[in-house]
Computed example of a mutant assay.
Amino acid sequence: MDTQTQAPFEPHYKSKRYKKLGRPKRWRKRLSLLFAGLLVAMLGGAGWFYLTPSGSDIRYMMADTLITSQHRYLAKYLIGQSELDRRVAEYAKKFDEMGRIKDEHNVALAAHPDSDVQLERISTAKYKGYIMYVHDPKMIRVATTSIVGSGETVLSMVKRTGAIAGVNGGAFDDPNWDGNGFKPAGIVMSGGKVLYKGDGMQASVNVVGIDRDGLMVAGRYKPSQLLAMGVRDAVTFQPKFIVNGKGLIKNEADGWGIAPRTVMAQQKDGTILFVVIDGRQPGYSVGATLYDIQKLLLARGAVTAANLDGGSSTVLVKDDAVVNKPSSQYGMRYLPSAFLVFDHPEDFDAGNIWSGIDMEHFDSSKPRTQSAS
């Protein structure tokens, strides 16, 4: 009876025991296979990323995106320090060459009885933003910060001056990336006067601006040349990428990475277009390359276009409100200059906040307090 009663249960007992003892071996084998698969995938992905043309295109696009941000140094982990230095120098050289291309100014400035400022919403799977149309280019002026030792937000400039609208302007010195923005880079002109000339009157810089007749001027010029040309308002930035109705950026790979963008352009009838594209916000808008903006503007008949300061500086203000979504988690940056639109631009005087200050020794990483000398 004992044999009969034990026999049916013996296989069951052994089965449980063998399963219990065999389970770790099977799991170890599965984990080993999983890790091996992951390792192969990682090595294969790294090989594709670093060794194939398609992977390299993406890698360089990522590097260019970092180059346009405050984290430029991180690009060395994608392309190496020597390649990073070479690429930055290559962009600088290319932008200078683009700035020297002669502009025939194929613009027939028309009378603009309608002075309305219009907004067009831009929305694609990749990026979102706005185009602001200013039909009368003479309504546009460069405004500057009103705070000694600090930049000023575009919203504050618009409210302070009574402007209709405004976008961020030119480059500035910001060594610690804290957004102080008091010290411009290059030059600043407003009302036909040179308010700031970091390298003197005879040094060529890339500028974006507008002359007394409302004609957009972009390219590489000396401040003395700009005065002789009758340029009224200008800031420093680059590159000029549409000249005489033709795009200078050949493809996506040369589009200087994906980022928030601010761009100024002009159509044949003189209408000025300010393109403001949001970026660095996954799920909403990652940003655009300059090649993206070039296609956007050529489709709208732009004959001239140039890049303005973008990234976390990108902002569009209209009717005393911020229209777009700036990328900085800290809000709008404090800037030295902005392009503002006025109902009565002839009444606007920017003054000169930098007059009497020795800017050569000014440290813009120390905000707010700076005495005149």
Rank of each mutant, 00 (worst) to 15 (best):
Q4N: 14
Q4A: 14
T5L: 15
A7D: 06
E10G: 06
Y18K: 14
L21P: 04
W27P: 04
R28G: 13
R30K: 11
L33V: 15
L33R: 12
V40C: 09
M42R: 00
M42N: 11
L43A: 08
W48K: 01
S54P: 00
T65W: 05
I67M: 07
H71L: 11
A75D: 06
G80C: 04
Q81D: 15
E83G: 04
Y91R: 10
Y91K: 10
F95L: 03
G99F: 01
V107L: 06
P113F: 04
D114Y: 07
D116G: 07
L119I: 08
K126S: 08
K128W: 03
Y133T: 04
D136G: 03
P137I: 04
M139C: 03
I140E: 03
S146E: 12
I147D: 12
V148T: 12
V148Q: 12
G149L: 10
G149M: 05
T153H: 03
T153K: 12
V154E: 02
M157C: 05
M157Y: 04
V158T: 11
V158R: 02
K159L: 09
R160S: 14
V167E: 06
D173Q: 12
P175D: 09
P175H: 08
N176D: 15
G179I: 03
N180L: 00
F182Y: 15
P184Q: 11
K197C: 10
G198H: 08
D199P: 00
G200V: 15
M201V: 15
M201T: 14
V205S: 09
R212E: 15
D213A: 15
M216A: 13
V217L: 14
G219T: 08
G219V: 03
K222N: 08
Q225W: 06
L227I: 14
M229S: 04
R232Q: 12
A234F: 06
V235I: 10
T236P: 11
F237N: 06
V243I: 05
K250N: 14
E252L: 13
G257N: 02
V263A: 07
M264G: 07
A265Y: 02
T271V: 00
L273N: 01
V275L: 00
D278F: 03
Q281P: 08
L290V: 02
Y291C: 01
Q294C: 00
L297G: 02
G301E: 01
A302Q: 09
N307M: 01
G311N: 06
S313V: 08
V315F: 08
L316V: 06
L316N: 04
K325I: 11
P326F: 04
Y330D: 10
M332F: 05
M332G: 12
L335E: 05
S337W: 01
S337R: 07
V341T: 09
E346F: 00
F362C: 12
P367L: 11
R368G: 07
Q370L: 14
